[in-house]
């Protein structure tokens, strides 16, 4: 079964991390992910940019509305996501618990089963890097 694991957190706190703090947390998170990646269970992992960079498309009367900002104004915002291919929910829960243990603060992980809409060809986010034009 494929699951998407969504990480929610207080954005203000996360963006108050210093570079050193950020790197330390990332190193620990990668440590948790490595065994899952080696077992071929880890799909694309993404880190979302700040909600200030987000745009929301909402259904309007005639044309869809394009609004500045994330979908909903809440305290906790979607910060990033993992996609894992695991046996059962249990394993996705266990993985999320491990991530949560090394992630400081009150982050939540939303686990949602999903199907592959498009497997994607992105690699390191560089495939369509528009600055380098490669």
């Amino acid at each position: 079964m494929l699951y998407a694991i969504l990480c929610y957190a207080h954005e203000e706190t996360v963006f108050a991390w210093s570079k050193e703090e950020e790197e330390a947390v990332m190193a620990k998170l990668i440590e948790v992910q490595t065994p899952y990646a080696k077992a071929g269970k880890l799909g694309p992992v993404g880190r979302l940019m700040p909600t200030t960079a987000a745009t929301t498309v909402r259904k309007g009367k005639d044309e869809p509305l394009v609004l500045d900002g994330p979908f909903a104004e809440t305290k906790e915002v979607l910060l990033g996501f993992y996609t894992v291919d695991v046996e059962a929910l249990e394993e996705a829960v266990a993985f999320s618990k491990e991530l949560s243990a090394v992630n400081p603060g009150s982050s939540s992980y939303e686990i949602r089963p999903f199907y592959v809409f498009h497997p994607g060809e992105i690699k390191n986010g560089e495939t369509h890097n528009r600055e380098t034009g490669t």
């Binding site: 207080h10 203000e12 706190t13 963006f15 108050a16 991390w17 703090e21 330390a24 947390v25 400081p104 603060g105």
Partner: peptide
């Protein structure tokens, strides 16, 4: 990150 370090960040963020 220790608890106290996290709390200090949360306080800074909430300030």
């Amino acid at each position: 990150m220790t608890d106290i370090a996290w709390i200090e960040l949360a306080l800074t963020a909430a300030r």
